[in-house]
């Protein structure tokens, strides 16, 4: 997926990943790769500014812990973040429906490398 397309939806993806469990930055990237079967690879230089911005917007809450002798910062959704996630999911659903309508409905074409 082209970087500029991903960038517009990264907030939604990060909020969704954190909806289940608090995670630190590396784990968020890992989880995104796992859930998308390696289709999405978010650069670290992109993710951390997003995390900090969402934290400043009070959509995420951060906390520090010591793991393996290092300080680790983990993020979790706030109540506001949960609301924002629901709102952005609705927005994505509407957007996807609109695009599908233009393209003539959801396509059944499998993506490269996947078995149908």
């Amino acid at each position: 997926m082209k970087g500029d397309v991903l960038r517009g939806h990264l907030d939604l993806l990060v909020l969704q990943v954190l909806a289940d469990n608090p995670l630190h930055g590396y784990a968020i990237i890992d989880e995104l790769k796992r859930r998308t079967d390696d289709a999405l690879e978010v650069p670290e230089g992109t993710l951390y500014p997003v995390l900090h911005r969402l934290e400043r917007e009070r959509l995420l809450e951060a906390s520090w812990a010591e793991v393996n002798g290092r300080r680790r910062k983990s993020y979790r959704l706030t109540h506001l973040g949960t609301q924002a996630l629901a709102e952005r999911r609705r927005g994505w659903t509407d957007f996807r429906s609109a695009i599908d309508a233009v393209l003539g409905g959801p396509t059944a074409q499998p993506s490269v490398g996947r078995t149908p």
């Binding site: 900090h52 934290e55 400043r56 906390s63 812990a65 793991v67 706030t78 109540h79 506001l80």
Partner: peptide
């Protein structure tokens, strides 16, 4: 923060809206 090496559990009763690292 819980300084132990186990994954941190979020303390109950923390008001998420007002508590941020920022």
């Amino acid at each position: 923060a819980d300084p132990s090496s186990t994954p941190r559990t979020w303390p109950a009763g923390v008001a998420a809206d007002g508590v941020t690292g920022s």
